[in-house]
Amino acid sequence: MLEIKNVYKTFNPGTINEKRALNGLNLTLNDGDFVTVIGGNGAGKSTMLNMVAGVYPVDSGSIIIDGADVTRLPEHKRAKYLGRVFQDPMMGTAADMWIEENMALASRRGQARGLKWAISKAEREQFKEMLRELDLGLENRLSAKVGLLSGGQRQALTLLMAVMKKPKLLLLDEHTAALDPKTAAKVLALSDKFIEEGHLTAMMVTHNMKDAIAHGNRLIMMNNGQIILDVSGEEKKKLTVEYLLEAFTKLSGSEFANDRALLS
C-alpha cells in the first residue's frame, strides 16, 4: 500500500541550522497494516508523514502509494490517497465554516470541484448519521461554526473527515497529543474503530509508548531519520515499555530522549 524507498531529506542545507531529518528511509506497508511510530525528539517521525503527504519535497528517493509514484505530486494531488489528522486540533478543519461545510469539503477529497451546490440534502442526512456515531452531540449542530467546538470535538471531526471518503492510507500525526487524557482515549478508540471497520492502512505517530504498544498490528521505532526497530504480529503483542526503552538504548547507542514519552 505504501512504499518509502531510500528517502533523504535535509532541512536548511548548508546553513548552521542544517538538519538531516530523513536518512535513507525505507518502509513498506502492507494492505491493512496499522503501524504505530515512536522515536525520540527529531527522529523524523513527523517528517516521514509530511513527506508521504507531500508537505515538502524529498531530496531523493521515492514514495509510492497504492502502486502510484507520488514523489513529484504536490500535496493537494496526493490528498486523494490520504486521510490526515494533525497534532494541532485547529489544523484539520476550517474554523469559520460550518460542521456540514467542513464535512462536504472532506467528502469531495480527490474530486474535481465545480459549480454544483456544495451540500445535497441526502448528504446532510448522511453527515448527521456519521456525527451521531461520534457520540459527541454534534449531530444537531450541523450549522455550527467549527471554531466553536472544543479541541477534542474538532479532532474527532477531523478524524471523521479523514476517513469519510475512504483513504488508501490514514496518517495520524500525534493526533491525541494536544488533548486531555480522557478525550485522547476517546479519539484513539474512534481511530481504532474507523481503521477496523474500514480495513484501513494507517500510520500513527505517538509519543505514548503504551498507546504505541496497545494499538495497531505493527510498531516501528525511528532514530536519526531511519527505522531502527520494526516489530509486528505476535511479537508486537508481547512488547513492553521497558523492552522498548532498552532496545532503543542498544540500537541507537543513546538514551531515549523524548521530553514527553518518558513521562507517559
Binding site: 493537494h76 490528498a79 489544523m91 484539520g92 476550517a94 469559520d96 465554516m97 469539503l105 472532506a106 469531495r108
Partner: peptide, 19 residues
C-alpha cells in the same frame, strides 16, 4: 466552498485536495 476553505485554513484545504 473550496475558496472559503483556502482563505480560512490552507493546510486543511490542501489536505482535502484543494489547489
Amino acid at each position: 466552498h473550496s475558496l472559503r476553505a483556502t482563505g480560512c485554513n490552507q493546510a486543511m484545504a490542501r489536505a482535502n485536495g484543494i489547489n
